[in-house]
Amino acid sequence: MVKYILKRCLQALPVLFGATFLVYGLVFLQPGDPIRALCGQHCPNEAGLDIIRARYNLDKPFILQYLLYMKNLLLGDFGTTFSGRSVSDIIATSMPNTIHLGLIAIAFEIILGVGIGIIVGIRRGSFFDSSILVITLILISIPTFVLGFVCQLVFGMNLGIVPPTVGSSTDFEHMYMPALILATGSIASICRLTRNSIQDNSYADHVRTSYAKGLPRYQVTLRHIFRNSMIPVVTYIGADLGALMGGAVLTETIFNIQGIGNQLYAAIQRGEGTTVVSIITLFVIIFVVTNIVVDILYAVLDPRIRYGK
């Protein structure tokens, strides 16, 4: 098992560097001089510009810039915005809110998605089953921001059931609706996946053998159908985190949650390349790391992965 975890981490390293390099490259390969573009007419003389370039490592070759950037990043220094604010500061203050939102959303995914999926998976072929199949498709195709606006309008402004915007508050009362909206598509996908997985597993040979052993239905269902069905669901939740992070940017913006996604939106609006890259890089790192965790979890659930291959 330890060997597997080490191997998995080693495999993730090139992916991590490749992905961050790609994102970094995308923004810093821009034509033109970012410093000159930024200061416009108020630029200091060439010597002054050089000092600023040196401060941002812009005088060094690109690959070195990237490595220095990664070094700082791994030490917790995400650089500073051109206006002088530390990106680490921004991240430190806004990250907890986003994590809060994300955790509530994932909790919804697991409780609602897996829960409903299990129910329809057992009652396959029923009217309930087929209506859930259609409803989930509808939920998957409604864009997060459309759902966000509509809910904000209906529940927040017209009905006044929930606060229309979250602001700096992060208690559950304020957060549950944005989190639910953020999770909607994933809930629906997980629900379908769970259903299909449970159905496939109920036809497995070993399930029939378990019945033949004399196990009562609930034991077969719990030990042999559910347990095996959760394997693809766990993998999916990991892979889906990427979509969740993209969605968080939209949800936080709509509900004015002071999270990292909102900061990303603000940075885009202000045209601050460094901040945008830093935040996206952070997201990529989180994504890769969580997927390592998910892979380990996968190996815990499925012994065939642990050994062999």
């Binding site: 497995a204 040979d205 070993h206 399930v207 029939r208 053998t209 378990s210 033949a212 030990r223 042999h224 347990r227 095996n228 394997i231 659930l301 499925d302 012994p303 065939r304």
Partner: peptide
Amino acid sequence: PQDPMSNLNPVW
């Protein structure tokens, strides 16, 4: 049962 490969639950 018939097929020993598929009749034991792989995760237990």
